[in-house]
């Protein structure tokens, strides 16, 4: 009997995600996918077999009940408290759910985003080759929208066997956020570029799957001029400076192109870590080359 879960408790911005809608940019659609790709894949690594998609939840937590069938689940990303029928599970968590079991996840010490992965595939329509929810375009996932209380998710076939791999170790929380200079970095003068590297920034409460605004505590960008730029491709991790000088880090549901100047692009592994920084976290930026960024990422995978 195929498994069905019922969402009994959910916050805003909780979505079905998979590795992303690769190849959709040419149609004006961002790839979407998990805010913390590392957490998303770690959750799957906990399972003997895994479906390609999972649920991304937030600090509002998640409560789900298995209505029928059975499911093995893996949870990871940030640090959350997970309880299976009231009994605490260590994080990252795994457990076997049978009918009427309840999984309760509440926020703990770290992170904005957590993931539940399953040993079966979610039975949802593939949209442009992916199950990822794109909240901006209203595509994919469950009816193209965030999950709500009362939603029932059905599962289909078993996922594929877990291939043992060398999952990369998670970078440490307090390190600087590494970036490569962005495609408009040369348009910022030397003092502003220095200020960006030397300055302290704070993650603000204005955070969603499209972007995370930063507080520029030393007003590095206060004198930013409103440059008239040709619209050009955007990638996740771009640090864009809005007309009023506010820096915003563009995330997985970004606009495919944008006309505001972008000073930096956060490196792929550090973007996962950045996504987990809660509002109020102070961060500083450190420039690296693309070669260095890739060397660090690939050496970490082999450790």
């Amino acid at each position: 009997m195929s498994a069905t879960i019922l969402i009994e408790r959910v916050g805003p911005m909780t979505t079905v995600q998979d590795a992303g809608r690769i190849g959709a940019l040419i149609h004006g659609v961002a790839a979407s996918g998990p805010m913390d790709q590392h957490g998303f894949s770690t959750a799957a690594q906990k399972l003997p077999r895994w479906g390609t998609s999972g649920i991304e939840f937030t600090t509002s937590g998640l409560g789900l009940r298995l209505l029928s069938g059975q499911l093995e689940i893996g949870c990871a990303g940030g640090v959350f408290d997970a309880r299976h029928n009231g009994s605490p599970l260590p994080w990252p968590a795994t457990c076997q759910l049978v009918a009427d079991d309840y999984l309760e996840i509440t926020p703990s010490s770290y992170g904005n985003f957590g993931y539940v992965r399953f040993d079966c595939e979610l039975d949802l329509p593939s949209v442009m080759g992916s199950l990822a929810t794109n909240t901006r375009a209203g595509l994919g996932g469950f009816k193209g929208r965030a999950l709500e209380v009362g939603d029932r998710l059905q599962f289909g076939r078993l996922g594929k066997d877990n291939q043992p791999s060398n999952p990369s170790s998670a970078p440490k929380g307090g390190d600087p956020i590494h970036f490569t200079w962005g495609i408009h970095a040369h348009l910022f003068n030397h003092d502003v570029r220095q200020g960006f590297v030397a300055g302290l920034f704070e993650v603000s409460e204005q955070m969603d799957r499209m972007g995370i605004k930063l507080r520029d505590q030393q007003n590095v960008f206060s004198s930013n001029q409103n440059l008239e730029l040709v619209s050009e491709p955007v990638v996740p991790g771009d640090v864009q400076i809005l007309g009023d000088g506010t820096p915003i880090v563009l995330m997985r549901d970004h606009q495919p192109t944008g006309g505001y100047p972008r000073i930096a692009t956060i490196s792929t592994p550090d973007l996962n870590r950045f996504a987990q920084c809660r509002p109020g976290t102070r961060i500083c930026f450190e420039p690296i080359t693309v070669e260095h960024s890739l060397a660090v990422e690939f050496s970490r995978r082999q450790m």
């Binding site: 490569t180 495609i183 050009e232 491709p233 996740p236 692009t265 792929t268 693309v290 890739l294």
Partner: peptide
């Protein structure tokens, strides 16, 4: 030019 560590941008003009 690099567009992060997963993309390159080939730019033919600034305007």
């Amino acid at each position: 030019v690099p567009l992060g560590d997963r993309a390159l941008l080939v730019r033919f003009a600034a305007t």
